[in-house]
Write a protein that binds this DNA or RNA. Structure first.
Lengths: 252, 252
DNA sequence: CGGCCGGTTGAGTACAATCAATTCTGGTGG
DNA sequence: CCACCAGAATTGATTGTACTCAACCGGCCG
């Protein structure tokens, strides 16, 4: 293995601060120093498209910090169907466990590079560094918020509503990361979307078409959507979660 | 306000340790010392049945630690329907926020007493006490696991499956807390269950009846179920998450 | 006694699942 | 540059399940 030619800055965690306004932007929580300290205890893992990162029930020896690419966390239903728990992007943490065992499986959707953090090392660091702990707490709050929103999405019955909420989710993720985008990129395929929002891939397709023919969205290709009619879109997806600026203005 | 006559031991957090086997039992994570320290910075809040604890979008000034009773966290859908994000029992933390605003609402299902922890005080404590931080991290992992399991449940389509998974959820919660029970107590009504598992209350009733007539469960009254046919039950609900004892035996 | 709340039952409808066939797309090699 | 191929996506016809709306039941409390 040759050394990585690009400069390595170490693991990264970005999230909203649960308790301080941040103008709708996620911040990089870790300091340069923290990232360096985490870097020395971590190795870099590479996964090919479709490759398994870990399996549910395996001994949880490490957590992963996605660097590039997209991964999925998933669970297998009793009838064999695969339910996607979360899509994981850069700066996300993966490897949730309980009692020393992973509580879900994970695999790469695109090619993925990630920092692999052995939990033994991480844990000893956590018991020393309250600052790092606090950042992990922030990230977990963020993941919890996402998981609840996912459940909220799944509680909807109409396929178009689910799809619209999903698109809103992905869009806001990019906005929160500071990327102004006219188009929503969809690195996952129709079946991934279906397994995430709890409908079949055929229903996903029909929902896309329904939104397209109604002039609400426009597909450039498989992986790029544009929201044409924002009002109609928001009426289907529901208002996006409180944007601080709007919130503060309308309140009091 | 008279002083509380019963001895106060202070806030409590119980969860699985994410990284150490614990024989399927949740532990009380906080030490006597930590609980005392948290107690001095907290006040006791009492909520009547149905009373609102906080509303989505409100400034997040405190988090709550349920002491007695049952509460619900919920979100309102665009069509006005209420989706229950989580049922909250003793030792649970509630008050998830982002950017200083609550990201869901919460209200009491039964009469509730809770410790109210102002986040300003809590946060200053968190930046000092790595041990406390670690315990909060454990609890958040636990909540995240629950939220993902909830989403998994919601991704099922058949009402009987959803209900069975829900009952399994509640049962395991009691087992994890060390209470051996022959009967599953349901402190919430049919409409709460429906709002949690994403079906109408009529469908909840029909699912209960379906399981009853098939001889799988038995209702003592509105609020107490007994699982009669465990095999049939598990076949519908899916195998319960890895129980460490079984897991270790069947592995290697 | 009457009203209310939680719960049950029933008939008709709407929506997505299913299964199967077909088209589209992007990538490959000749 | 084109022909070809495999995987992804679309379309269509049918079926099943839960939703809707409405009526009804039973206990509890004033």
């Amino acid at each position: 293995m040759a050394k990585i030619p690009i400069p390595i800055r170490g693991p990264a965690i970005s999230a909203f601060d649960p308790w301080a306004p941040s103008a709708g932007r996620m911040r990089q929580l870790l300091t340069v120093d923290e990232r360096a300290r985490l870097a020395v205890m971590s190795s870099i893992a590479r996964f090919k498209k479709g490759e398994t990162i870990y399996l549910e029930g395996d001994p949880a020896e490490a957590i992963f910090n996605i660097n590039t690419g997209v991964a999925e966390a998933y669970k297998i239903a009793s009838d064999g169907r695969e339910h996607i728990t979360a899509f994981l992007f850069a700066d996300d943490l993966v490897g949730l466990s309980a009692e020393g065992r992973y509580t879900n499986s994970a695999k790469a959707i695109t090619a993925v590079t990630a920092y692999r953090l052995p939990i033994t090392l991480l844990r000893s660091q956590l018991s020393k560094d309250a600052e790092l702990d606090f950042h992990v707490i922030c990230k977990l709050c963020e993941e919890l918020r996402q998981a609840q929103r996912h459940a909220f999405l799944l509680s909807e019955k109409r396929a178009v509503t689910k799809l619209a909420m999903f698109l809103q989710l992905i869009e806001q993720l990019h906005i929160a990361k500071g990327q102004q985008i006219a188009e929503i990129p969809l690195p996952m395929d129709r079946s991934h979307i279906g397994r995430y929002i709890g409908i079949t891939l055929e229903a996903v397709g029909r929902a896309f078409r329904a939104l397209t023919t109604r002039g609400i969205i426009k597909l450039r290709d498989r992986g790029h959507v544009r929201i044409v009619d924002r009002d109609a879109f928001d009426k289907i997806a529901g208002d996006p979660p409180v944007l601080p600026a709007i919130e503060l203005a309308s309140r009091d």
